[in-house]
Amino acid sequence: MAGPALAVPTSPSDHGLFDGGAFPPQAGGIVTYVDLGNTLASYVTQVSLTSTLSAYLTASAAAKTFLPFTGGTITGNASINGEVTLTSATGTGNAYACLNASGQLYRSSTACQ
């Protein structure tokens, strides 16, 4: 159980309540401390955390639902609103965007074959 509320010192010269003595010359600001001990132990438990967090998306569910940051496959139609940049196809000047028989998109300086 927490102790009774005490007046908080408003300047370094108001000492004794928390430290039993003078503040050192280098002290600045006000520091307070309350030892809660096990006061909150009955409020935060593994069971209550599990219950509270169960409504949120888990890492394993996300792995089955969303594409990873690298790799992954999109099946079906895909619509993109905006520009698409293929960093592996960068170069200088204009070029042809070609699609080979394996479905790979590549950059070519000559017309696609």
Score class of each variant (00 low, 15 high):
T75I: 04
F18E: 10
A7K: 08
F23K: 05
G76D: 06
T32F: 01
A78C: 05
G3W: 02
T92D: 02
S79F: 13
P4F: 05
G37I: 03
G20D: 03
A5M: 13
L49E: 09
S11H: 03
T39Q: 12
T90H: 00
T70D: 05
A7S: 13
A95P: 04
G71F: 04
T75D: 07
T45H: 08
V34L: 03
P25D: 11
F18C: 10
A101F: 06
T70R: 12
T90V: 11
G21E: 01
T50K: 15
D14S: 07
S102H: 06
A55D: 14
A78W: 01
G28L: 13
G20N: 10
C112P: 00
A22C: 05
A63V: 08
A5F: 12
H15V: 02
L53W: 08
A97C: 14
T50M: 04
N100E: 08
S51C: 05
L53Q: 09
K64S: 13
L36G: 14
S102Y: 12
H15Y: 09
A41C: 06
G28A: 10
Q113G: 14
L86M: 01
G71D: 03
G16Y: 07
G103W: 09
V34W: 06
N100S: 09
D19W: 02
N77P: 03
A89I: 11
T65I: 15
T75A: 12
S54L: 10
F23M: 14
L105N: 07
G37T: 06
A27E: 06
C98I: 01
G91D: 00
E83T: 15
P68E: 04
L40F: 15
L49I: 15
V44S: 08
P25R: 01
